[in-house]
Design a protein around this nucleic acid. Structure first.
Lengths: 246, 246
DNA sequence: CGATCTGTTGATGCTCATCAAATCCAGTGG
DNA sequence: CCACTGGATTTGATGAGCATCAACAGATCG
């Protein structure tokens, strides 16, 4: 159930069977959610922390002019909003599913208990919010300082590495259940332009995209094209097979 | 010494004299730093948490193509990197001063002690990182979904409110010691375009900029032009004179 | 009082947005 | 199994926003 979540946290520090049991125990209900549904809505005070078990989701927000912006992608094993819940604050953005998904809840009480009584787990959770923030900064750098083709390429690098860090794939190909519209909404470009950039990346032989699976053909070349350096993902203790590729 | 810092934290919850004393006590040395100096450099493991006492600074990063991007502005009272220090991680970006500045250090040990033994202070610090992350998301929305003029206007709204929340000003005018190049570097536009947008905002009577003081002429009109809604700054318990303007 | 940084202006071109329509594709029902 | 349907991708044409290059004026400062 929590495999992806645990695998992700293990990139920071190894967790014992006891610790895993504590996490497993904290999870209350798992629900199936259709594509395009808000898990959390802006101006809502979440009572539980949500954990994405399966499927993809995104943080997003919409300007008054009606232009949407995806501000993060959530993969299986990603937590929704630890701090907002713990501090009992209002959500300042929404989270919606990008595919059919399974979402688990961790009641605030249990989360508080973990933070207070299990310092190692608390540190791991703390680490995961640090990574979230770091990703956010990298996206900002991407949007502000890179042209659309490198921007998209950089995103693909990130998603591949995150997929591998969560144990979702083992090579240079990963499941990417997003439409070009959803990719564009994250990169701040239109669907038309997204399409043209994707075509260029494919025609240049950099990527292959078939049946929602994106393959990066020459990882080193692609990394260098994207200016991708994985340090910002803070995977210092990554699994050797992943570490070779960072 | 810590007035701005305390004032900022008081927007989350009121702090007692005891708590303030604990913070004052944690601060070790204060140093003067010239403009344009890196306080923290990428790929460095900070030993202490840095606190900006006076002057402005920014988080930034540079792409391999040599294009820089400012990812956050730090005002007096802002902390540099609590989580990175606490988790003993590597910095994934740099921080440099944008004016002459005074910077204080809080040794990691003292910070850990506060987190472990003073839950109210810990919560306040936790809150401030939540706000930092929220600002980051708003900048992303700004860069991805708003044209340059609203983008810049929105930034000014944010900086005014943050200045007021830190007790740096009391009306609709605030000290903005930035060059147009530095503004552009944050908004992802060139210095030339920044200049033209600024001129437009001034000629339309929206803002007045004299001697590094930016005044917003009609707050309600400007807010609506900028699509600024302060909820993302999480100032729920703000001082009444500020709250009226949120 | 030259040197340097900052702000300003003009000319030109590229990246990307916008609008519109065609094609492809997966799923659905007859 | 084929026609239908609605979403996703693709293509073309045109224009706006912003970048780039270059030069100059104004401010600031040792």
């Amino acid at each position: 159930m929590l495999t992806n979540f645990i695998q992700k946290l293990n990139n920071f520090q190894e967790h014992s069977a006891d610790e895993i049991a504590i996490l497993e125990d904290a999870v209350s209900g798992v629900v199936d959610v259709d594509k395009g549904i808000d898990i959390l809505n802006e101006r809502q005070r979440p009572g539980d922390v949500q954990l994405l078990i399966d499927g993809w989701a995104c943080r997003y927000s919409v300007t008054r002019q009606g232009k949407g912006q995806i501000m993060a992608y959530l993969l299986p094993g990603d937590l929704c909003d630890v701090h907002v819940t713990l501090l009992n604050r209002m959500m300042d953005h929404s989270i919606r599913t990008l595919s059919r998904a399974k979402v688990a809840s961790i009641p605030r009480r249990k989360m508080e208990d973990i933070i207070d009584n299990h310092p190692r787990l608390a540190r791991s959770l703390f680490w995961s919010t640090l990574v979230d923030e770091s990703i956010l900064r990298m996206w900002l750098l991407n949007l502000g300082a890179r042209p659309a083709n490198r921007r998209l390429a950089h995103l693909f690098c990130e998603l591949l590495v995150r997929s591998r860090a969560a144990g979702l794939t083992a090579n240079h190909s990963f499941y990417l259940p997003l439409t070009q519209a959803e990719l564009g909404e994250a990169m701040g470009i239109t669907i038309v332009h997204t399409n043209r950039v994707m075509q260029k990346l494919r025609s240049e032989g950099l990527i292959t995209f078939r049946q929602k699976h994106l393959q990066i053909n020459d990882w080193e070349a692609f990394k260098s094209f994207s200016e991708f350096e994985s340090t910002y993902l803070h995977l210092e203790r990554a699994d050797p097979s992943l570490a070779r590729d960072l």
